[in-house]
């Protein structure tokens, strides 16, 4: 069982919904990211989604784009990203880390080399936005073979005919994208999301976590209620981008996590 599977088993046994927090590695610098990562579990974060910056983040809105830009300017690379994960793992062996990013930095490094390094560093899952099931041979299958969960996005455009293909090689959890659009854009509506999550859950035993467009503790609560948990990214990254000190960012994350955990 992967660290992600264990986390969801634990949450389920306690009747709790999952709260997933996204931050960008290297925004504004690697030391701050490590401080944040170390503080997240204590304020209620069940899974850390750690963004790997890319120059051309086509699925992201202005907030995450700017964070990626800051991270690249601060010198974030795949090497340093792996260092961050190792440093975190040295002190925390239970909180799952999911890498979210785009394929080219991984492809450029070489898939086999990257997968081996990711396992060694302690990365538990991958969300690679520009790798749909049609390209599973690229990274999804090698990662799975090495024991890394490949977490697939399901979207409002994923119809019933396509859903089995999307779920086929997915593991860890399913990430339901609540809106058609980019990160940090429109607000997710529980009335739209609920039936969609139910539709996905009818087709898989994996937990379904909802992300995109969740910015407040109240939204985290209402969305988590109709799913197995929720992801908040842009709302947290915005605080980091505004230059707030780590304790203030963590306080904000705590209130968002509390919202999800009330569900």
């Amino acid at each position: 069982m992967s660290r992600i599977d264990e986390t969801f088993v634990r949450l389920r046994s306690r009747g709790r919904k999952a709260f997933v927090a996204y931050i960008m590695a290297g925004d504004p610098d690697a030391d701050t990211t490590l401080d944040l990562m170390r503080g997240l579990p204590a304020v209620g974060v069940d899974v850390i989604e750690l963004g790997m910056p890319f120059t051309d983040p086509m699925a992201d809105g202005p907030t995450i784009q700017a964070a990626g830009q800051r991270a690249l300017e601060s010198g974030m690379t795949v090497d340093r990203y792996l260092d961050l994960v190792r440093a975190f793992r040295a002190q925390d062996s239970t909180t799952p880390i999911v890498m979210m990013g785009y394929y080219n930095p991984i492809y450029s490094r070489g898939v086999d080399r990257f997968v081996a390094e990711a396992v060694q560093a302690g990365i538990d899952g991958l969300i690679i936005v520009d790798l749909p099931p049609e390209e599973d041979a690229e990274l999804c299958l090698p990662a799975r073979a090495a024991g890394i969960n490949f977490i697939r996005l399901a979207t409002p455009t994923t119809d019933d005919r396509r859903l089995p293909k999307v779920l086929q090689n997915t593991s860890g959890f399913v990430y339901y994208v609540s809106i058609t659009g980019i990160t940090g854009a429109a607000a997710a509506q529980a009335t739209d999301v609920g039936p969609e999550v139910a539709r996905i859950k009818a087709a898989t035993d994996l937990p379904v976590i909802v992300g995109f467009g969740i910015t407040t503790p109240e939204a985290a609560e209402t969305i988590a209620r109709v799913a197995d948990g929720c992801v908040v990214g842009s709302a947290i990254v915005k605080e980091i981008g505004a230059g707030r000190p780590v304790p203030e960012v963590l306080a904000r994350v705590a209130s968002l996590a509390a919202g999800a955990h009330r569900a």
Binding site: A59, D130, E134, L153, T157, T158, V177
Partner: peptide
């Protein structure tokens, strides 16, 4: 059929765009 010219080409897009 996968949209490849040798190793080049393909369909590296997000799931939202894939059905389109």
């Amino acid at each position: 059929e996968a949209g490849r010219f040798g190793i080049f080409g393909g369909r590296f897009v997000s799931e939202t765009l894939m059905p389109l």
